[in-house]
Design a protein around this nucleic acid. Structure first.
Lengths: 107, 107
DNA sequence: CTAATATGTAACATCTATGTTACATATAGT
DNA sequence: ACTATATGTAACATAGATGTTACATATTAG
């Protein structure tokens, strides 16, 4: 996962409307229309939010007739999760090294 | 974790400079000056990036003399990770329900 | 074939984020 | 005390994100 790609994913999650959409998609696939319904902002605005999620690889769309069925792209979400895990693993290692260093100083 | 707080964390990670800073902080604590060094953008710009990370609860700063030592706030990072995990768990459950439904239809 | 429906895209306005320079503050060195 | 260093903050310019309305496209209904 390139830094740029990870960044794009976090950017996609950095908006309250999109965060909410992802949460709702987690309960199951929905059409663009269903997804747009609960919000006060215009449908085209939601349409673009959906595009951002698609382009970030966090959501997928399957066109069936005139409806676009959206669902979550688990792998895309996992990429963001992996990045976080990696950083935390690095941090644990750094902490461990620091701890050993301090202990050596005290001997 | 409120949606707003989670959003703030993803927003903090939605910038290439900040993403890079977090990655570097994972290797161990550093001062603001050290963190600013590698970048072509001005030091005040980095200073504000650091502030964004602090306010999102992703980094912490400890003032020692005239230096500000930055380090990662693991809990803050974990909040973002937990949100992702939760969404993925919801999605798994939804998939499972769908699968059972389809199987019932085929009996 | 025509009308209605579902949805994306384009063009434009506006709010927000990010970068810059200038300045304030506080600590360390001489 | 006086100067240099480390760093944050304020004010402002500009780039980028987000919202709106108008329009294009494609599919279903009658």
């Amino acid at each position: 996962m390139s830094t740029k790609a990870v960044n794009q994913k976090f950017l996609a999650l950095a908006d309250p409307a999109r965060l909410d959409i992802v949460r709702r998609l987690a309960r199951g696939p929905q059409t663009a229309g269903q997804l747009a319904q609960p919000y006060s902002i215009s449908r085209p605005a939601i349409s673009r939010h959906l595009r951002v999620l698609r382009e970030a690889g966090i959501a997928r769309a399957e066109v069936r007739g005139r409806e676009w069925w959206y669902s979550i792209n688990t792998e895309g979400l996992q990429d963001a999760g992996s990045w976080l895990d990696e950083v935390q693993a690095m941090w644990s290692t750094a902490l461990q090294s620091l701890k050993e260093y301090v202990e050596d100083q005290n001997d």
